[in-house]
Simulated assay, not measured.
Amino acid sequence: MSTPDVFDEDLMLAEAARMDLVLARRLHEKAMTAEDVDEIGSFTRAYVRATRSMRQCLALLSRVKTERAKAAREEAQHEAWMAAREAAVALKDDADPWPAPDPDELAHASRVTDLQTAVSRMSWAVADKSRNVHTAMVHRFDRELDDWWDQPDFLDFELEPVVRHAARVLGLPRRLADRWRELPDPPYDPEPAPAQPRAPDHRIHWPPGESADTDAGPADAPDVPVSDSA
């Protein structure tokens, strides 16, 4: 069994969190044993700052590990793609030059990536750190996107109106759609949505139309409850 890599920044963040925990315990003890009101208040405030610092260190450590794992996955995917490409070329002695990508396919793929990123960020902002809620909303949008992708005018609309339309369909706040580029990415990538048969009354929520520029309610009730606390 291989030993996981240990990075200096991981060790430093973990050590900082441990020191904050030790400090927080000492301050808690002093606050509990102090009798002077001013001392109690001072120790309590210091305790709150120490615990907040500990939580920030742990959150940053988790984010660093997540981003590192994501980068490793992307590198492995790229290497696998390059290996497959080289193998395909090697099978043909007189192989033609590698065909240029279809601009329309690239544009579709770029639009899909942007929309998935926007919806994932908006969903995480209202999911109150619930991975189940976030994953359910992402899966619901993936099913919507399956319908949108096939529409002949999929690329006729600018990205931002389509993001607002997606927010409306999912029942997400308009303010999140307006600033989705500023929202943080979730700390994980949901698994792909399982195959699901279409309902007899299945409805395709396309095109965006004027709904993308209004604050009207969702086109249909979302599959999962969300809070508006973001």
Rank of each mutant, 00 (worst) to 15 (best):
M1V: 15
P4N: 12
P4S: 08
V6L: 11
V6H: 04
F7L: 13
E9Y: 14
A16S: 14
D20S: 15
L21G: 04
L21D: 12
L21R: 05
L21F: 12
A24Q: 04
R26F: 01
L27D: 05
H28F: 03
E29T: 12
A31N: 07
M32A: 11
M32G: 06
A34T: 03
D36T: 07
S42E: 15
S42Y: 02
S42L: 13
S42N: 13
T44D: 10
A50H: 09
T51R: 14
R52S: 12
S53N: 14
S53K: 09
M54H: 00
M54A: 01
L58D: 09
A59V: 10
L60P: 02
L61A: 09
V64M: 13
V64Y: 12
E67V: 12
E67A: 12
A71M: 02
A71V: 10
R73K: 07
R73V: 15
E74G: 04
W81L: 09
M82Q: 04
A83G: 02
R85M: 11
R85H: 08
A87D: 03
L91W: 01
K92E: 08
D93R: 13
D102G: 02
D102R: 07
P103A: 04
L106D: 14
A107Y: 01
H108K: 07
Q116I: 01
T117W: 08
S120C: 07
R121G: 03
S123G: 02
W124C: 02
W124H: 10
A127N: 02
A127K: 07
K129N: 13
H134Y: 07
A136C: 06
R140D: 15
R140N: 12
R140S: 09
D142T: 08
L145M: 05
D146Q: 13
W148P: 01
D156Q: 14
F157I: 04
A167L: 00
L170G: 07
R175H: 08
D178N: 14
W180L: 10
L183R: 06
P186C: 03
P186S: 00
P187M: 03
P187H: 09
P190L: 03
A193I: 03
A195Q: 09
P197F: 08
R198A: 15
H202V: 07
H202I: 05
I204A: 05
H205I: 01
W206L: 01
P208G: 05
E210K: 09
E210F: 04
S211E: 11
A212K: 04
A212M: 11
A212R: 12
D215A: 15
A216V: 03
A216L: 05
G217A: 13
A221V: 13
P222K: 01
D223C: 13
V224E: 13
S227W: 10
S229T: 15
